[in-house]
Design a protein around this nucleic acid. Structure first.
Lengths: 210, 210
DNA sequence: AAATAAACTAAACAATTGTTTAACTTTGCA
DNA sequence: TGCAAAGTTAAACAATTGTTTAGTTTATTT
């Protein structure tokens, strides 16, 4: 399931790991080739260049993690805050289960170097904001959410909290003395904690009283 | 403003800007030397190496932004939540006014490459957590804050929201149509928005009812 | 089986990297 | 003034970078 079935995907997966741990610039094509167990030239052969390898990674991963939002927005039966909860849980799981990619994403947002990557990120952010705006309006129309909600600020807290947790992970474990837990157990715990934490926060942000 | 080592500080400031925009690896010592208008060899002369230049930057900036917490914690007259508000405002202003450094800090937290830098970050994080824990305990003793507050999770939302805002800045301006504002005006607005946003959130996190 | 295309490799490529050298100029002070 | 220390420079250093080449092996098609 998670195992890449062909060589190209294997290189992509290896590159993802190295970009996340060493950074894009510091991870050389030789590092990637060695770690993937393939010849140096195979990276140019399959992707054209290191830069395009990065772009392929973003195309691949962002396509795979696209939200299934339309059905959620059009659902007339589900409660607006339940929809918010679904979005929060969906995002949290995505980030925690794909920490390597979201580390790369975070750094690329800071650098803004690769134009193709920037464009992909921009489109994702704006679609996210538009979707969330619509959802909030629905809740406001039903007098469930308060007026004058700052959408981008709300989403900034969502993405900021979760991505920052990737980086704070070790401190979190150390501070709360969860060292005995295995890696999957830690991730499950983080998802749990982040979920209730952000749902609680979003009640306040949206002015929702249950 | 005493500046005994003008040139060294100038190089440091230039390097900070380039590390923030291009990243540590991509910003070459020649880039830094050219941008600072100094000879290439001056960087090795003053700092020893590129790596130590980075470490000098962190020593310099983190020392300068050290919290004046002791007086805050020992203050018996100020309300616990007022203290939280002071901490939030202090952190927000620091990050917004020193965006370049906090971009670098963010990336370094992801990479974890330079041991000296990692150690500095770790010490800062743990001292922050310890300080905040004490503050929360004070509020709990006075029956103002609720029990079972996740300190690291709370701080993760604080740092995550603010640092993420640096990265979301352009989208925030675009989405809310604030393009006409100047850079200082934007920063003032961001500080204002983040302040009320996080104070609101922390009321919920701490279970504080005004 | 022969021919053609795809997959793969080791070696070489030019360019760039951080750092050092050795010579030169300026500064500070006895 | 004299002169050592500090500051500054252009040039060179070895190592590493991403990419390409030219050739070989493997797979597919006819």
């Amino acid at each position: 399931m998670n195992e890449p079935n062909n060589k190209k995907d294997h290189i992509l997966k290896t590159a993802e790991e190295l970009f996340a741990t060493k950074g894009y610039e510091a991870a050389t094509v030789r590092d990637i080739a060695d770690a993937a167990g393939v010849n140096l030239a195979m990276i140019s052969y399959y992707f054209g260049s290191k830069e395009k390898l990065m772009e392929s990674l973003f195309h691949e991963r962002m396509e795979a993690s696209r939200m299934k939002v339309e059905s959620l927005l059009n659902d007339k039966t589900m409660h607006p805050f339940q929809k918010v909860e679904v979005i929060l849980d969906d995002y949290i799981k995505k980030v925690i289960h794909k920490q390597s990619f979201y580390k790369i994403l975070l750094c690329e947002q800071v650098m803004k170097k690769n134009p193709v990557v920037i464009k992909l990120i921009r489109e994702l952010k704006l679609s996210y904001a538009a979707m969330f705006t619509q959802l909030i309006k629905e809740g406001q129309k039903k007098k469930i959410f308060k007026k004058n909600i700052d959408v981008v600020l709300a989403l900034t807290t969502m993405t900021g909290t979760v991505t920052q947790m990737i980086v704070n992970k070790d401190y979190y474990i150390e501070f709360n003395e969860h060292k005995k837990l295995s890696e999957p157990e830690i991730n499950t715990m983080l998802i749990e904690k982040l979920s209730s934490h952000l749902k609680n926060i979003f009640k306040k942000i949206l002015g929702y009283e249950e």
